[in-house]
């Protein structure tokens, strides 16, 4: 009977499921790493692990959404609400802030998106991917784990390729979090100007925020500011200009 209620109210069940997952992730992030390893990254890793385990049990292709009681996760994490929430993150971003960061800030955004995409695409090709849709989606994942799935569903990639693009973005985010404090000195990351460039080149929000927090919490807003434009620029450029370029060559 309880199961029936969970299935009938599938979206509410999904809220509870994701809420508990996120809570557990932030709890572990806080207790085990003192928040240095960002809770959002732990939560996404949990999501991928659950999807893997669900795939083993159900032999399906939709992760935990293949369980009837968790079918709401498919709606909550589907493209409609995902696109809606991603667009909402652009709210309150001040264009004047970007202008204030100057040429270096804007330049770093373009370099960040184009360099990350190109490297991701090259590696996808060297691992044997040949169709432009998969190459573009994996390249998009190296921009961020948001741009990957947004691009993948915009151009019609398979779920495996989209999952892979999330994984690439996740590896990037985790490396940025953990490596930044180690190399900060060597790359001159100790002032607002370099923090702005850092946010623009790396772009992964959780990675940039957590990485800078470990170096110097005062630098976080500078890096976070350019990083907020990064996803928008990625969502704009990758499924358009960059996809066309890949499409022309392959």
């Amino acid at each position: 009977m309880f199961e029936e209620i969970l299935i009938d109210n599938y979206l509410l069940t999904a809220f509870v499921f994701v809420g508990i997952t996120v809570y557990a992730a932030y709890f572990l992030s806080d207790k085990l790493t003192g928040g240095k390893f960002h809770g959002s990254a732990v939560a996404i890793i949990f999501g991928l692990i659950f999807a893997y385990l669900a795939g083993l049990v159900t032999n399906g292709e939709k992760g935990v959404a293949d369980f009837a009681i968790l079918s709401g996760v498919g709606l909550l994490g589907g493209s409609m609400l995902r696109d809606f929430a991603i667009v909402a993150t652009a709210y309150g971003v001040k264009l004047s802030d970007l202008k204030a960061s100057g040429f270096a800030g804007i330049f770093s955004l373009f370099v960040g998106v184009i360099v990350s995409f190109s490297l991701g695409a090259i590696i996808a090709i060297s691992f044997g991917y040949e169709d432009p849709i998969s190459i573009t989606t994996i390249g998009a994942g190296s921009v961020t784990f948001v741009v990957g799935p947004v691009t993948g569903s915009a151009i019609g990639a398979d779920s495996e390729v989209i999952a892979l693009s999330i994984a690439v973005g996740l590896v990037k985010s985790i490396l940025v979090m953990t490596v930044t404090p180690v190399v900060a000195k060597r790359i001159g990351l100790d002032n607002p100007r370099s923090a702005i460039v850092f946010g623009g080149v790396m772009g992964t929000n959780s990675g940039v925020a957590a990485g800078l927090a470990a170096v110097d919490p005062k630098l976080v807003p500078y890096g976070a500011m350019t990083a907020t434009f990064y996803t928008a620029l990625g969502c704009l450029m990758v499924p358009s200009i960059l996809f066309f370029l890949i499409d022309v060559f392959f």
Partner: peptide
Amino acid sequence: YIPIIVAMAAKQNVIGALDGGWMAVVAG
């Protein structure tokens, strides 16, 4: 937005993606 991304991760075909797991690490 982060919880929605978590839900999105939880509904992916991760088993299919694991064939390319090394690629994710190398690319990242």
